[in-house]
């Protein structure tokens, strides 16, 4: 069944097709959630909440643009809202200029996706969210600042610290 037909079947409320749609995208979306969550239980909660939103707001998808991108955006927003609810605090605002640390690409290449996710999960909340949004999702610092209600300089600072933290971690694993 193609994507459009599947979405239309879900819109009609077919539980069987909802399950099919879930199975088609849940793996990728769970990986997204794992990147934002502190642990797999939190990620599972995010995934559940996100998919409930997907099915209840499905009528707002107008078959324009990538459906996977639409779901991913819902998951990211759900994750962000979860952490805003938990009132995570950015450590401090202010921009610190730090040299980029060189990372040996082979060290990362040898690691599995699960290991990389594990490393990201160990990042402090503030670092993790900003690293995910900027480095992996491709949001600009201005967008991140607007979404999280922080200053752009804070976003930059957190990203820099996240990178350094990751490099240290990867070095220690290596």
């Amino acid at each position: 069944m193609n994507e459009e037909a599947l979405i239309k079947a879900c819109l009609r409320g077919s539980a069987q097709h909802q399950r099919e749609l879930y199975e088609r995208y849940s793996g990728k979306m769970f990986a997204v959630c794992l990147r934002y969550a502190r642990n797999s239980a939190d990620a599972a909660d995010m995934l559940q909440e996100g998919f409930v939103k997907v099915f209840t707001k499905l009528d707002q998808y107008h078959f324009q643009g990538s459906f996977e991108g639409w779901i991913r955006k819902i998951m990211v927003n759900t994750a962000l809202r979860t952490y805003q609810r938990q009132r995570f605090d950015m450590e401090h605002s202010g921009f610190e200029v730090m040299p980029d640390q060189a990372v040996e690409p082979d060290a990362i290449a040898r690691m599995s996706e699960a290991e990389l996710l594990k490393v990201i999960a160990q990042l402090p909340d503030g670092y993790r969210v900003i690293f995910n949004l900027v480095a992996i999702e491709g949001y600009s610092h201005a967008e991140v600042a607007q979404t999280l209600g922080i200053q752009e300089s804070t976003s930059r600072s957190q990203l820099t610290k996240a990178r350094r933290w990751l490099c240290d971690q990867l070095e220690s694993i290596k």
Binding site: G27, F30, L34, R35, A44, E113, V134, I136
Partner: peptide, 21 residues
């Protein structure tokens, strides 16, 4: 570099969620 590496490896990663979800 580190951003690129993580993006490349994780942007399309897939992990099977627990069945109770």
């Amino acid at each position: 570099d580190i951003d690129q590496i993580f993006q490349k490896r994780l942007s399309n990663a897939s992990v099977t969620p627990p069945p109770f979800v």
